[in-house]
Each structure stands twice: as structure tokens, then as C-alpha cells.
Design a protein around this nucleic acid. Sequence first.
DNA 1: GCTTAATATAAGCGATAACTTATATGATGC
DNA 2: GCATCATATAAGTTATCGCTTATATTAAGC
Lengths: 121, 121
Amino acid sequence: MTQAFDVLGSPVRRRILELLAERSRTSGEIVEAIQRELDISQPGVSQHLSVLRESGFATSRAEGPRRVYELGAVPFGEVEAWLDRFRGAWGERLDALATEVARGKRERRLQRAKEPVRRRA
Amino acid sequence: MTQAFDVLGSPVRRRILELLAERSRTSGEIVEAIQRELDISQPGVSQHLSVLRESGFATSRAEGPRRVYELGAVPFGEVEAWLDRFRGAWGERLDALATEVARGKRERRLQRAKEPVRRRA
DNA sequence: GCTTAATATAAGCGATAACTTATATGATGC
DNA sequence: GCATCATATAAGTTATCGCTTATATTAAGC
């Protein structure tokens, strides 16, 4: 569990996860995007991918000479589990407006399902 | 938001947040606990508290000569919001067993309230 | 089997974060 | 106002992390 947050501590890795949340991608596609956005070399990106693989945030399979990456669920579950104790704490002693904002957004997203293009944050 | 994950990247800070999730504590109480568990000096702990304050994960008020710390909700909400996009991704392309474990646990906790002792996994 | 393409690993280096010790600040009690 | 307790800040050092360049690995196509 400790691991999971260490992995999410890097903005580059978070960005890669965002890309993978949209769809699976090859190493090359990820390298291209990260290089464009954050100007990091191919080996630099590859090292981050390695961290994501080893921590379970991403899995990879060979497809010809390329490697296709996709999201792994387990560590996200661990993060959720850790956050659980704070959800309790909010209810007890905070009005937790920020939480409700976040949860409201989640609920809403489930309800729409098909909407026009999503802008990046 | 980037900030929030940087803050959670430290195991010491995560431990402090766990302590604060149980109840509000004075700086001294936190120092004592962290010193015992992780062998870190008073200034070391104080610096972590400073990070938690500045990021909004904790707030502090003076109470006589001591400072009482308690949890702040906002950054947790930001973390939730970021995680939202991955909840969607799980539904789309993963069976997400780990997620369901985590969510199931949360739901179940709300429903039981009084049950025999639960064994740890 | 050699070349090329796609990706990963190795080695080294610089920045940053997380400690330490020493000291300042600020409230309390006499 | 001075001593004391509780906490924070300052300054300096070390370890870790995230990058870079260089090179190894693996698959495909000819």
C-alpha cells in the first residue's frame, strides 16, 4: 500500500495513468505524448513504465515488437481502501464539502454515459 | 492537486493522517507517536506537520501553549476527484475485482454496524 | 543471418527532499 | 519580567529519485 502512493507521487506517472485511463496504448504512443507534453527522453518514460508495471498500476503484453500497456486495478483498490478511513473521519467531524463535490461528480458521470468530447483539465 | 499526491507520498505524513483520522491531537502527541514508531526527531515531525498544514490536509489551532491538529477535508476531495476517472476506466475494461473489494468493504461497513468480530485477510 | 525498429536496461549525475542539530518564538506561571 | 514548556524555524548534510546518454534485447522483414 505504501508503494501505491509512492508511485502516484510522480506527476509524470500520474499523467501516464491518465492516458491509460482513456485507452490502452503502446509504449511508443506513451513516449510520444509524454515527450511532447513534458519533454522527457524515451528511456526516462520507459523507466516510469517499469515502475507502473512493478507496482501493478499497469500491465503490459507484447504485440509484435511493441508493448501494449493498460491499467491495472489492484493498487487503485489499495488506495481506495486507505482513503476509506478518512471518509469515516469526515462524516464524524467535518462537513466535508470537498468530498461531496467529488462524489457528486462521480454520480453524475455514471448517469450521462455518452457526451461530446471531453476537454483536458 | 499535484500537490496532494506529493504530500501523500511520504509514509510519515500518511501515518500522521491516520492518527488524525482517529481524533484530533496536539503536536506533542503526534511527535510522541511518530518518534516511538518511526524514530524521527521533534523538528522532523514538525516539518511534516507544516507540510500538512500548508497543503490543507491538516489544520491547527492554538490551545494555550499547544497546537491542536485536525484533519482538513479539501485535499482529500481533490484526490477523490482525480481517482474518479479511473473508476470509470475500471468499469470499461477491467473486471476490477480489487476495486469491488474496496467498495464492498465500504458498503458493508455502512450496513452491518453490529456483527461478530471480523478476521483480517 | 543481417538490418532496422521498438523497447528496455545500465551507468552516472544533479536536484530535491527528508533528516539532523541548533536556535528562535510564544504562551504560562511564578 | 524571567524561567519553562511546547512548538516552530534555520542551516547544513545525506540519501534518494528522476533524469540523461549509451547500450543491450527482442522481434520482423528482407
